[in-house]
Design a protein around this nucleic acid. Structure first.
Lengths: 292, 292
DNA sequence: AGAATCCATCGGTAAATCCGATATGAAGTT
DNA sequence: AACTTCATATCGGATTTACCGATGGATTCT
């Protein structure tokens, strides 16, 4: 059995206005149409929705109980239509942002909140990866937009735009690590201890070249959070984003004081030129690139 | 613009089956009907839902994004129809249970869970009151079913049935209270200290007559939880349900050792004979009265 | 009692829904 | 290449639904 949307709408309006004819006026239909729609609904549901003994109809107990359900149907149908017209207006059906853990800021968070406000019908997905993995997700089409530390050479199909903010990196080790005992350290001394660095699934990548290199066989992990855990466990030293250490290991890692550290790494937004950005992607790219 | 339920259903089935004709078979309609319904929906939404270049149609990006919304509409409409047929089948549209804090048990909780399972379409409301207030909520129709310690005389319109379990009450005071310092106490000694007792909005009530009486002007509150707070704050002694003290003030109140205490109070379910119980109310009444 | 509303019902019209038949197109087979 | 198979699109026509305007009965207010 099908419940016609006309009946549901007539019922909802009549219930909230307490009058069939008022509902008819509000809906721009004739009174008889509303009356018939409601009585058809009553027949379909097998229930009396209104007590019509008085001058104006009053919701019955069943009507009260069902009104909420009817409104759920109508609002779901409304959402469907809003989403459809957003899509028909050119909005992309989904925006996938791939992020590096290198960076996080209030500016970034507020941009995402603005995105949610501006494009309420957008399906938004956020995934995490580092370095070359970000690029490969973008060029494969799995992700629409990426945010990562600037890399040297990229494929020409990858569009890129600089981001105003920078990510701060420092060298950290656990409090128990031998490097922490010494006061001032030379960069060369790092080479004597195990380095904890990023790896990537995409073979080509060798991470950022500006990281200090260790002579000892280094350990690697696919993201900064695991790297941070390894450092906390004392397995070696690592170059980590400051915000991440402050947020998750403020008291469990010590920053090493080295010449030229901490460093500030420029960031950029990337996308694929093969798949043109939709309005939300365009907006987010520009918003991330703009000054705070 | 209205989206016909036929179109939505055709779209949902076609999307999940990957075929218009399979959807038509499943819906018991002709293939042309499904094809037309979907193309009408596409026109209404202003979008192409399927890529029809291959032999069998494939959801477009917009189609994927909208499928979820469409299913929300259909499932809301389904819920509406299920609720309607439950109501048409005689189920009351709402069941309001008024409870005394005197009692709580696993048996009771499991009954409520069974109620939720058996009557998934029932709107259930639980409110709290004590003694005479419970009776007045029942007889006014605000509540359907009440659960309270047995009272002596009740109006004849109130139906009542005994509950197998009993509620345990004991006399408590805060650790700093003078009564606690003494070891064994006579019931008569209580009279020298302030009593914390229940009051009710309904004038007629005088609470349970079996409570010890104080000669000092007693303080009162409308429910056991506030009474417990007053006792914790050291304002006097109170007769409280044991489960409540165990749950909320295990280490902040001391049980007084008195002759004839603790006591076990019989409970009963009450309802109004003027408003016959629906199937859920009947079931719950019998379930509460039955042995665990 | 009379005026003003309100709802139910009826006849008629336009539109939507549905079917069966037919045309057309894609994929796989011979 | 021709053929079979299994899709979808489209057309004409029957049925049902949505809608309107007119009418009549009931309730409330004056």
């Amino acid at each position: 059995m099908k419940l016609s949307p006309e009946s549901l709408e007539a019922f909802a309006h009549a219930a909230s206005l307490g009058s069939f004819s008022a509902a008819a006026r509000q809906l721009g239909k004739s009174q008889s149409t509303v009356s018939e729609a409601i009585s058809r609904l009553e027949i379909d549901l097998g229930l009396t929705l209104f007590d019509r003994s008085g001058k104006s109809p009053v919701l019955s107990a069943a009507g009260q109980a069902l009104l909420g359900r009817v409104e759920e149907v109508l609002s779901a149908s409304d959402r469907l239509q809003r989403t459809a017209s957003a899509l028909a207006g050119g909005l992309e059906s989904r925006l996938t942002l791939v992020l590096s853990d290198a960076y996080q800021s209030e500016h970034f968070k507020s941009r995402i909140m603005q995105l949610a406000e501006r494009f309420p019908e957008l399906e938004f997905e956020c995934i995490f990866a580092e370095n070359a993995d970000i690029i490969s997700l973008i060029s494969s089409g799995r992700a629409t937009l990426g945010l990562l530390p600037v890399e040297g050479q990229l494929l020409p199909e990858i569009g890129r735009a600089p981001v105003a903010e920078r990510a701060e990196f420092a060298v950290y080790a656990s409090p128990g690590h031998p490097l922490v005992q010494q006061g001032e350290i030379e960069s060369s001394q790092l080479a004597q201890w195990r380095h904890l660095g990023l790896n990537t699934l995409s073979g080509s990548a060798q991470g950022q070249e500006w990281q200090p290199v260790s002579q000892i066989r280094s350990w690697s992990a696919p993201n900064y959070l695991i790297l941070l855990d390894l450092a906390v466990m004392g397995f070696g030293w690592a170059v980590l984003p400051r915000w991440l250490v402050d947020a998750y290991a403020a008291d469990k890692l010590v920053e090493l004081t080295l010449p030229d550290w901490p460093r500030f790494q420029a960031l950029e937004v990337v996308w694929s030129r093969k798949r043109p950005l939709g309005p939300a992607g365009n907006w987010l790219r520009d918003a991330l690139a703009s000054h705070p």
